[in-house]
């Protein structure tokens, strides 16, 4: 795990020399937080994507929500939520599920603008997601299409943080316990309206705060939380 971040930092530096000028290069030029930083001092960005499906090559990004976490406080002033134009016509029924009307999606950003905005917000921060695979693969696919390279970035996956904790207990548990809603329930966090990227990002942030308050010290180094 240690090597992962050191390795990640090395990868960042290596990659930043290869990547052409532009938003991805700018993102990669900002160092990642030090792996020994106490978790309470780590700047984070809680992030959530809403997509038309699980496959980054065939499905599409519908909306992006993110909010900063500093000093273990979720800063609603930094909350951002934006919709994408791309691929909306092929999204089918899922659009309804994600509560995005066609009109809204037409007013959305182009993939290029959206990813640029996202990379700007991500720079220098650890990315917090619940079940990182979606965000990782969709962001990688988008960046490859736009800039020719997929980015590297440090991730705290709140699902993995909870899973590691549950695995240590050596008691069997139902995998559905690891869903965002169920984990939040286990901390008596208020019910939240899922399937809105920003709501989910805030909900993920709250879950991590609860997780840290109950099971970890504020001083615990970042490296223990990274995926």
């Amino acid at each position: 795990m240690f090597d992962f971040l050191f390795g990640l930092e090395a990868k960042r530096r290596g990659l930043s020399t290869k990547v052409p000028k532009g938003p991805l290069k700018n993102f990669l030029s900002v160092p990642f937080p030090e792996p020994n930083t106490p978790i309470s001092e780590v700047p984070m960005l809680a992030l959530d994507f809403e997509t038309s499906g699980f496959n980054a090559t065939t499905d599409h990004l519908l909306s992006i929500g993110h909010v900063e976490i500093n000093q273990l406080s979720i800063k609603l002033a930094s909350a951002e939520h934006y919709l994408l134009k791309s691929g909306i016509e092929r999204a089918g029924d899922n659009v309804a599920i994600h509560q995005i009307t066609e009109l809204e999606s037409q007013q959305g950003l182009s993939l290029e603008n959206a990813i640029e905005r996202l990379l700007n917000a991500m720079a220098g921060k650890v990315i917090l997601v619940h079940y990182a695979k979606i965000e990782q693969t969709f962001l990688a696919a988008a960046c490859k299409a736009l800039y020719g390279y997929a980015p590297v970035f440090p991730i705290i996956d709140s699902l993995v943080v909870a899973k590691n904790r549950l695995d240590q207990r050596q008691a069997a548990y139902d995998p559905s316990n690891l869903r965002l809603t169920n984990l939040r329930d286990s901390y008596q966090l208020p019910a939240h309206y899922a399937h809105n990227a920003l709501n989910d990002a805030v909900a993920t942030g709250e879950l991590l705060l609860a997780e840290i308050a109950h099971h970890h010290s504020r001083q615990k180094p970042l490296k223990h939380f990274l995926r």
Partner: peptide
């Protein structure tokens, strides 16, 4: 008003204000 909110989480028994504020 909501944009001025910082969300914090405190465990039972902890005192206010939270350490970071």
């Amino acid at each position: 008003l909501v944009s001025k909110i910082d969300i914090c989480y405190l465990k039972q028994g902890q005192q206010l204000p939270p350490a970071q504020i």
